[in-house]
Amino acid sequence: MSLLQVTDLSMHYQGRQSLVQRLSGNPQSVVRAVEGVSLHVEKGEVLGLIGESGCGKSTLGRAILRLHEPTAGKVLFDNSDVTALSPPALKAMRRRMQIIFQDPYASLNPRRTVAEIVGLPLALHGIAMGDKAREITAQVLERVGLRSSQLDRYPHQFSGGQRQRIGIARALVSNPEFIVCDEPVSALDVSIQAQIIALLLELKRELGLTYLFISHDISVIGYLSDRVAVMYLGEIVETGPVAAVLDNPRHPYTQSLLSAVPEIGAKRAKGRVRLQGDLPSPLNPPKGCKFHTRCPLAIPMCQTIVPVVQTLGEGHQAACHRLDEGLSLLDGAR
């Protein structure tokens, strides 16, 4: 049984409407940020969630933790339905599910000391108070590579990489099993990014953690994930073991995403696909397959019929009408 099982999760936001719009009876606009997403994360694995900005990957991460209340769908964590928990039960559950945020500057309260920031979950969950809490906080701080002498400093006294370590310490202090890592290294310079990635992998190994790792960086995802899910406009278009998805991408979006990444060193073995145009607005997503407006392989049926998810191999799935034809954009461009 998976540690986390998400079924048909949707997250819609109601658009704002002016009085005139309301009186004139226009239907309210709805942003479908996440639409019918199903995924599972096994204990001890890293599921990499990849997609471009605005595809709904962060919203999905937050909806799973119920930081946003999902519109529809079910989230099972260790066999209990997170979406149905009462507020006190949800609070207790949050001790086991934590999140690390993208922006190490915006996600730490500038008026609190590190001891207060990292120690807050201990107080909230009634784990420890006073000196005991300070002792645990100091240990966690040392564990993430900071010094316990820095406990009484404020976030502005730290660099970006150190702040991200504080964010990691805060997520770790309640001893969780599952952490949503929401672009934790995107705001960092390359050399610092590598330090944080190494730290996250080390912690996972030592503490037996499970991650949902959200990123737009394919290199990062490819390096640290066991399985990968690719998101486009609120839907998962392809998912599977990292090797299968990266070496043998089947969905045209995954193929073009991979081929857009600049490579270092080795000459590109496969051709390059250029996607035309921009991501369509999630306010008014295309009908049928959401990717058809940019897809070089689109055929008339893609404009009207939503493709179903097909299984292609061991845990490898994709949703595209033309999978059976074995077409690859990468071949065509070679």
Binding site: Q193, A194, Q195, I197, S219, G222, Y223
Partner: peptide
């Protein structure tokens, strides 16, 4: 160090060698 810091899918399982310090 910069080159070794870049995670690459081909290096899965191998440790990254970040540049220490800042």
């Amino acid at each position: 160090g910069l080159l070794a810091s870049i995670p690459r899918p081909a290096m899965r399982g191998q440790p990254l060698t970040p540049i220490n310090g800042q």
